[in-house]
Design a protein around this nucleic acid. Structure first.
Length: 635
RNA sequence: GCCGGCGUAGCUCAACGGAAGAGCAACUGAUUUGUAAUCAGUAGGUUGGGGGUUCGAUUCCCUUCGCCGGCUCCA
């Protein structure tokens, strides 16, 4: 029989050939590396028989599929190990995920992290034994009988659609309900590390029982695994909570869980960020407003937040009247809009607000600056005519991309979410709105993912995702059309026809939450901010006390040039001062001693780059001012 | 909110039923230094809070608050 290889070539194989035969026929090295086989686009067990004319490819751990095959198999081996160590444990599901795998268990008794090493030991035994993974297809009745003692498996089997193939995989004396495929035997799962435990609801629903999830990862070789563990450690070093403390940017206190305290250096970064933000927005034609943090309950009833968002809101009483702390800025912004009559001639009207919002997040979800209970949204509300929507959306996309590029977030992933099942507004309205969003996206030429039915109940939206150094993606910017608010608040403008009309309202953020964005860039830069954002841009290091006056003079020159400067006058060695300033990631250091004072120069040292040699004060001031300048804003 | 883990000096960690310790940071003094840690000394803690067991609790138990890893939710 003949099969087709990925490069388009044809290969003749004996009748009854399997993926293994194919790999062996191609070469001994591939045969050794083969974990599975892709047949006509579907990854299968290596020993799956091939058929005439199949499009085939051998799967190895070099590919994503191969890795996930390996990890999925590793999860089975871990389940075997866990049930051996703790007999009576019920097993749930165990898929491969990005960078690893997990398996959910229902333990008779709670386990502890110290048990993880025992699982690893047991996994090692199973790997050594090289038990083959054997696939069997069974009837529903057989499956139910086989997993009679496994309530979660029984539930899964019951939920399988009529006529579905039910397959089981056995290795050694462990059998699992599984669609497969798997690696040929347990010796092929590579280097496995059991990482952590966590609680997880059965099937992800919070009204279901909580299971114990065990995370692990597997790599083809010990070396790959070690590299991955090193990457994890590097990411841990970049954790913004750790860097925030070390660089003295912000802190958290028991007295205010989820509410960050910003220190002077943190405020410098935030204010610099906002200076830049304001420049970009001014050029993009935005006006800035500011609305109160506490507003009357009646406003929230009118906006719909009372009905839809109450659980996340904070309340207070003033003079016996109910007020709410705002979780969003829109209702306040709308009151500003309504404070005057508007004409179509003013449109598009772009009103930005750096609004401090409070949301009662569940205690378990708080996470440094990434998830807080009070944060500043870089919000804006755009009011325009229906025919202006597409241009406005395009303008927002441009602004978002330009600002992200400033921070080196080149890769932006866009998602368009359309009308959900439960929504307000006419079908025609939605069609038009979705078309304008899609139209704007098309004009950018960017790829985007379509999420049908994922829009807000009041309108479709575009979300922007960026990826941080730890590979986590963050939704920062969002741009959504809002049909609800103009209607609820009877917003109007006078049109060309001198009649009242409802404006189209767009709601958008760029950075999302200033606090969280700060957290993201701390990790993105590993704490070493670009010079324009650095809390201290230049430290001047006098060699000895007699150089302090000259050092202060140099500092004065640089301050006049607009730089944030400190003089390190401590009675420490030069080496120590340099080390401390390197550790706090100050972009530039100027070392001044007898030579520099005599020649009116300074020896420049750049963070991470080292000594750049002496330069005259004028040159130093000009060069550093240039290096520390806020990025250009283009019109 | 739920599951599991952890709370000891500002930070990183010891001691784990029998007088609370180290390194770094801080402070004081000496040193005046040429590109990643000068030396010496001082101070710092009701061991997160509350309750219990015990002759005795940082250690064991309960409870509460916070933090960490996840789940769920979300900017």
């Amino acid at each position: 029989m003949n099969v087709f290889l990925p490069d388009g070539s044809e290969m003749a194989l004996p009748e009854g050939a399997t993926g293994r035969t194919l790999a062996e026929a191609i070469g001994p090295r591939l045969a050794k590396a083969a974990l599975g086989v892709t047949i006509n686009g579907t990854t299968r067990d290596l020993d799956t028989p091939l058929s005439e004319g199949d499009q085939v490819a051998v799967v190895t751990a070099q590919s994503e599929e191969g890795l996930s095959l390996l990890r999925h198999s590793a999860s089975h081996v871990m389940a075997e190990a866990v049930t051996k160590v703790f007999p009576g444990t019920k097993v749930a599901i165990g898929p491969s995920i990005k960078d690893g795998f997990y398996y959910d268990f229902d333990f008779p008794e709670p386990i502890s992290e110290t048990d993880l090493a025992r699982f690893e030991e047991e996994i090692g035994r199973s790997v050594k034994a090289a038990h083959p993974f054997q696939r069997r297809e069974v009837s529903r009745e057989q499956a139910l009988q086989l997993f009679a003692g496994e309530p979660y498996k029984v539930e899964l089997i019951r939920d399988l659609p009529e006529g579905a193939t039910i397959s089981i995989y056995q290795h050694g004396d462990f059998t699992d309900l599984c669609r497969g495929p798997h690696v040929p035997d347990t010796s092929r799962i590579g280097a496995v590390k059991v990482l952590s435990t966590a609680g997880a609801y059965w099937r992800g629903r919070s009204d279901n029982p909580m299971l114990t999830r065990i995370y692990g990862t597997a790599f083809p070789s010990k070396k790959d695994l070690e590299e991955h563990l090193e990457r994890l450690e590097m990411a841990r070093q970049r954790d913004h909570r750790k860097l925030g403390r070390e660089l003295d940017l912000f802190s958290f206190h028991d007295e205010a869980p989820g509410f960050p305290f910003f220190h002077p250096k943190g405020m410098v970064v935030i204010n610099t960020l906002l200076d830049y933000w304001r420049k970009e927005h001014a050029v993009a034609g935005y006006q800035e407003i500011k609305t109160p943090i506490i507003l009357d309950r009646a406003l929230w009833e009118q906006s719909g937040h009372w009905d839809n968002y109450k659980d996340n809101m904070y309340f207070t009483k003033i003079d016996e009247m109910d007020f709410a702390v705002k979780p969003m800025n829109c209702p306040g912004g709308i009151l500003v809009y309504k404070s005057a009559q508007h004409s179509y001639r003013e449109f598009p009207l772009r009103m930005a607000e750096l609004g401090l919002v409070h949301r009662h997040e569940m205690s378990g979800v708080l996470h440094g600056l990434f998830r807080v209970r009070a944060f500043t949204q870089d919000d804006a509300h755009l009011y325009c005519l229906p025919e202006q929507v597409e241009d406005e959306v395009l303008g927002v996309i441009d602004l978002v991309r330009r600002m992200y590029r400033t921070f080196g977030f080149e890769k932006v992933h866009l998602e368009l979410s359309t009308r959900p099942a439960k929504s307000i507004g006419s079908a025609e309205m939605w069609e038009k709105a979705e078309a304008s969003l899609a139209g704007a996206l098309a004009r950018t030429g960017l790829d985007y993912q379509l999420n049908p039915g994922d829009g807000a109940f009041y309108g479709p939206k575009i979300d922007f995702h960026i990826e941080d150094v730890m590979g986590r993606t963050w939704q920062c910017a969002t741009c959504q059309l809002d049909f609800a608010m103009p209607e609820r608040f009877s917003l109007e403008y006078i049109g060309v026809d001198n009649q009242r009309h409802a404006p189209v309202m767009l709601h958008r953020t760029v950075l999302g939450s200033i606090e969280r964005f700060l957290g993201i860039i701390i990790e993105h830069y590993g704490g070493a901010f670009p010079a324009w954002l650095a809390p201290v841009q230049v430290t001047i290091i006098p060699i000895a006390d007699r150089h302090a006056d000259y050092a202060r003079e140099v500092a004065g020159v640089l301050q006049v040039a607009g730089l944030r400067v400190e003089v390190d006058e401590r009675a420490e060695s030069v080496g120590r001062k340099i080390r401390d300033n390197e550790v706090s990631k100050v972009p530039f250091m100027l070392v001044v001693g007898d030579k520099e004072e005599a020649a009116r120069t300074a020896a420049v040292r750049s963070h991470g780059k080292g000594d750049l040699g002496a330069m005259s004060l004028d040159v130093v001031a000009a060069t550093l001012a240039e290096q520390c300048r806020t990025p250009e804003v283009q019109g």
